[in-house]
Structure formats: C-alpha cells, structure tokens
C-alpha cells in the first residue's frame, strides 16, 4: 500500500513502542545497580521526581490538547519514562567503559541531568506522535492552526519541566549516541531543536549562558558580555 503521513506515523509509533517493550516502567537491574553503587543512592529522588513531573506533564498536556486527554498525557509520559531509563542505562554503560568507574554519584544526583534526559525522552515521544513538529514555520508562535499541532511543540516541554534550553542542549548529542534505534526523522527533529536553541532560545534574557560567558571572561581579558538584546 502507498505510504501516507498517517501510515508513516503509525509505523513510527509501533516502532517506538516495540523498542520499549523490553524496557520496564522501573529501572532495570543494571540501572538499579548503578544507582546502588552511588555514594548517595538517587533511587528515591528519581522516583519522586518522576511522580511529580508525570502529574505536571499530563495536566499541561490536557490543558494544551483538551481536558479529556490527560490520560493520553499519562500514556505519553510513561513511554517517555521507559525511554529515559533505557537511554540512561546506555549512557552509563558507555561512561563506565570510557572512564573505568562505576560510581556516578555526582551525575546521578544532578537534578538538571535527570530533567534534561527526561525532557529529551518526552520530546522524542511527542515528535513520534506528531505532536511536536514545528508546524508553524519552525517555532511555536501560538495562535492559529490546530492546537494539537502547535501548542505542545518544542520548546513547550522546557516550560513544562522548568528546564533552560541551554541544559536541554547538553543532553541531545549523547542521547542520539546512546539510542541508535532512533529513526532518521526523530534525529532530524532533535537536530532542529538543537538549531533553535543555538540560534535563538539560548540567547534570551535569563539564559544561564550569559553567566557562563561572564565567568569565562573573568580572569582573562575583561571583555564586555553582550546583552540579550544585542
């Protein structure tokens, strides 16, 4: 049968769900071991954070798509959690091989790392379902078009999980490396997110990038850091 957008989306969704059937809703034995090897075990914090963010995500999804869709939001979130655990385990395996260490206490107790990884996983799920596809010319301008298509598109997820674009950016490349089964379209989608951050979002007022640039300049040439407006 001829390929249609709907058929292509169905195939991508089935593929994603298929890839995640063996990944559970809880950390795998291997991932649990990484958690237990930490100086400070992050397990409880991870579970608590997922519970809170799951509620926020499904409610915001319902607000954006329709009140009857809160359940759908939970389903998307659960798929995102499976991907989050799967990619985290792959990242840690690769870091263990690279650094020859098994104690990742600092990384695994870093809230920003977990939030970025979860946000990226959720963005992949949303993009697979066609709910984050830059329908309004590469950016969510708000208003116009089908709300399902525009209201939850990137960078919607950053606002939902209260994450800066700069921190989201950090995780993208390692995410793509750690999850080789991502489709070409999803990789392209993440690349578009990356470009949006680099070209616009990371340069908005309040971005941590300005403070980092300032710190970088201190001690060296005392150049004036550009303001967001310029």
């Amino acid at each position: 049968p001829p390929q249609t957008p709907v058929r292509a989306a169905m195939t991508s969704i089935q593929q994603l769900r298929g890839d995640l059937t063996s990944s559970g809703d809880q950390p795998s034995t291997n991932l649990a071991t990484y958690f237990k090897n930490c100086t400070v075990d992050p397990t409880q914090d991870v579970l608590k954070r997922l519970e809170t963010l799951g509620q926020t995500f499904s409610q915001r999804f319902g607000q954006a798509v329709g009140p009857r869709c809160v359940v759908l939001g939970w389903q998307r979130f659960k798929l995102g959690v499976r991907l989050y655990y799967k990619v985290m385990e792959a990242m840690l395996k690769s870091e263990e091989k690279r650094l020859s260490v098994q104690n990742f206490s600092k990384l695994l107790n870093d809230v920003t790392f977990h939030t970025s990884l979860l946000a990226c996983s959720l963005e992949v799920v949303m993009a697979t379902y066609g709910e984050s596809s830059f329908k309004t010319g590469g950016y969510n301008h708000g208003g116009g078009g089908d709300p399902v298509e525009t209201d939850v598109c990137f960078p919607w997820i950053l606002d939902v999980v209260s994450l800066t674009a700069f921190d989201f950016y950090k995780v993208i490349e390692s995410f793509i490396k750690a999850e080789p089964t991502l489709s070409k379209d999803i990789v392209k989608h993440l690349e578009t997110c990356e470009n949006l951050i680099m070209e616009r979002i990371a340069w908005r007022t309040g971005s941590p990038l300005f403070e980092l640039l300032k710190q970088e300049h201190e001690g060296g040439a005392a150049e004036q850091v550009e303001t967001p407006a310029s």
């Binding site: 690769s94 990742f104 600092k106 990384l107 870093d110 950090k170 490349e173 390692s174 392209k188």
Partner: peptide, 21 residues
C-alpha cells in the same frame, strides 16, 4: 543511517557536560 553531525570528542561524555568527572 542519519546525517547528524557528532561534535563531541572521544574523551568527552555526558559526565563532563554536567561537570561531573
């Protein structure tokens, strides 16, 4: 199978990006 350009060097990983080595 995709055209993504990987920019991180072999000695860089997620630990360094979150300042945890």
């Amino acid at each position: 199978s995709h055209d993504y350009h990987f920019g991180l060097e072999d000695h860089e990983g997620i630990s360094e990006l979150f300042d945890c080595d």
